[in-house]
């Protein structure tokens, strides 16, 4: 709390930074649409010509966003900045439903334009979207280092292998005590916390750690709220759980992160380790866009151009939220993909 005044006094400069970065983004955007024209001849021009004039001031409409609570901070950042920089006549109702929840509840029914997901879309979900007559277009917006955490008073575990994690979390395992995993660890039962069974984080963890999608032991505490996972872990010396790195990053000291050994030695979770691929539990997080809406709605096109540029913003994505920003090359690829879909 005592740092607050400092934070607030820093605010105007942060705003200035954002404005200037958005100017950069706008220039980049202009350059990019120029590229599109060069590459794909007149097609793009005719479609945008049909849509009328493209002046940022005239943009309005509603873009419905649903999905993962892991992606939610990025969604909020993108929409908030878009409204500040481009047009505040565009309204964004956002709900946090979990990746699966968002797909089921809104996106696959055609009720939302964008769905955030902390796991890649399933084949079955793509098919249901096609039944509805649209294609879900995938864009990666950030990376995360899923963090395995223990209590601060846990003085035995420092580094853990994926195989050991799997033994902790598998349903058929007979393991109840820490000593079942490594004999030198204490004879105390685990107390396990993790993402709710409706979230993409859960899907990722079961697939990567347990080895089979949505299979997990019965007696863990599943919740949609990462804060509650952290509270659970910090309340019991023998607790263990997994949560997004962003949460750990924003609440240093409350819990202890374990190093992960994916077969090539122990690696501490960090944004660098996640982006260079040395951290084994690094995962991409995505948004999926309804292709029909993308072609119909000019405000959605503008928003996504802005959004994709913003995913490279070190200040917002890394420092404020705690995710791995996208590289320039990835952004360029995403922009190209976007322009292709719009045509």
């Amino acid at each position: 709390m005592s740092q607050d005044p400092h934070d607030r006094s820093g605010l105007p400069s942060r705003r200035n930074f954002l404005v200037s970065s958005s100017v950069v983004a706008a220039t980049a955007l202009a350059g990019c649409s120029g590229n599109g024209d060069d590459g794909d001849a007149g097609d793009g021009d005719t479609t945008s010509g049909d849509g009328g004039t493209t002046s940022a001031d005239e943009l309005s409409g509603t873009i419905r966003i649903s999905g993962s609570s892991t992606v939610y901070p990025v969604q909020v950042a993108a929409t908030e900045e878009f409204r500040a920089d481009v047009s505040d006549d565009v309204e964004f109702p956002i709900s946090r439903d979990g990746s699966t929840g968002g797909f089921e509840k809104f996106f696959l029914k055609g009720d939302s334009d964008i769905n955030g997901s902390s796991r890649p879309i399933l084949e079955e979900e793509v098919e249901r979207a096609r039944d509805q007559g649209f294609e879900p277009i995938e864009f990666q917006v950030a990376g995360d280092a899923l963090t395995a955490a223990v209590n601060n008073d846990n003085d035995w575990a420092e580094c853990i292998t994926i195989e050991e994690l799997s033994r902790i979390w598998s349903p058929d395992a007979e393991n109840e005590l820490w000593s079942d995993i490594r004999s030198e660890w204490p004879d105390e039962p685990f107390d396990l916390y993790g993402a709710a069974t409706t979230s993409g984080t859960f899907d990722y963890w079961t697939r990567e750690v347990v080895g089979e999608l949505r299979v997990i032991r019965d007696d863990f505490e599943g919740t949609e709220e990462d804060d509650l996972i952290a509270r659970g872990i910090s309340d019991n010396q023998y607790a263990h759980g997994y949560l997004p790195y962003a949460y750990y990053d924003n609440n240093p000291g409350s819990i202890k992160a374990l190093e992960i050994d994916g077969g090539e030695g122990c690696t501490e979770p960090s944004l660098t380790a996640a982006s260079d691929g040395t951290y084994p539990l690094a995962r991409p997080i995505f948004i999926y866009v309804n292709s029909n809406r993308l072609q119909e709605k000019e405000e959605l096109q503008e928003f996504l151009r802005y959004y994709i540029e913003l995913t490279g913003n070190q200040q917002i994505i890394a420092e404020e939220i705690g995710y791995v920003p996208m590289s320039d090359q990835e952004i360029q690829d995403n922009l190209n993909k976007l322009e292709e879909t719009i045509e």
Binding site: V76, T79, F92, P93, I94, S95, R96
Partner: peptide, 15 residues
């Protein structure tokens, strides 16, 4: 119902 909206609803059919 949405968890977050940026501008208040002004018509009966707004989120």
């Amino acid at each position: 119902a949405a968890t977050t909206v940026y501008s208040p609803p002004t018509s009966l059919n707004d989120s």
